[in-house]
Computed example of a mutant assay.
Amino acid sequence: MPTVQVTDLKDGDFLLDVREDDEWQAGHAGGALHIPLSEFVARYGELTEAAPQDGRVHVICRSGGRSAQVTMYLVQQGVDAVNVDGGMQHWQAAGRPVVTDDGKPGFVL
């Protein structure tokens, strides 16, 4: 499983958040693309439109389980994808900003 640590992510890295809507609304990484795992296959086209053609897709969820599933699927599709180890829990613990849709401080649900 290709994996990256939160601390290795740089500003501007493409981030795909596969948590469900209630988790996203509580707080997420600014600039992330949100496609819930439960809708991922149906909305796959949104990822192909948004993802950089020559860049890596960093997949994140709450703790790393759901994002691991999506990462494996993407790798099988030939996408350069990695799972963010520890997910949003590690993101928040590392002091990375967690925001709501209106830009206010959020939290990991």
Rank of each mutant, 00 (worst) to 15 (best):
M1Y: 11
P2W: 10
T3V: 15
Q5G: 06
Q5T: 13
V6T: 12
V6G: 03
V6I: 13
V6D: 05
T7H: 13
D8F: 14
L9P: 08
L9K: 07
D11K: 14
G12T: 12
G12L: 10
F14C: 03
L15Q: 08
L16S: 00
D17C: 04
R19I: 01
E20V: 05
D21W: 13
D21M: 12
D22I: 11
D22H: 11
D22V: 12
D22Y: 14
E23W: 10
E23P: 01
E23M: 05
W24T: 00
A26I: 03
G27V: 07
G30C: 09
G31D: 11
L33D: 03
L33R: 06
L33C: 09
H34V: 07
I35R: 00
L37V: 13
S38G: 06
E39F: 09
A42S: 12
R43L: 08
G45K: 12
G45L: 06
E46F: 02
L47R: 01
T48A: 07
T48S: 06
T48L: 14
E49I: 03
E49A: 06
A51P: 00
A51H: 02
Q53R: 12
Q53G: 11
D54A: 09
G55F: 09
H58D: 07
H58R: 08
H58S: 08
V59P: 01
V59F: 01
R66P: 03
A68Q: 09
Q69T: 12
V70F: 07
T71K: 01
M72W: 14
V75S: 02
Q77I: 12
Q77A: 10
Q77N: 06
G78A: 05
V79E: 05
D80V: 02
A81D: 03
A81T: 04
N83S: 11
N83G: 04
D85V: 15
G86D: 06
G86L: 12
G87S: 06
Q89C: 03
W91D: 02
W91K: 04
Q92P: 13
A93E: 15
A93G: 11
A93D: 14
A94V: 13
A94E: 14
A94T: 11
G95W: 12
T100S: 02
D102E: 13
D102C: 09
G103D: 08
G103E: 03
G103A: 06
G103W: 09
P105Q: 13
F107Q: 15
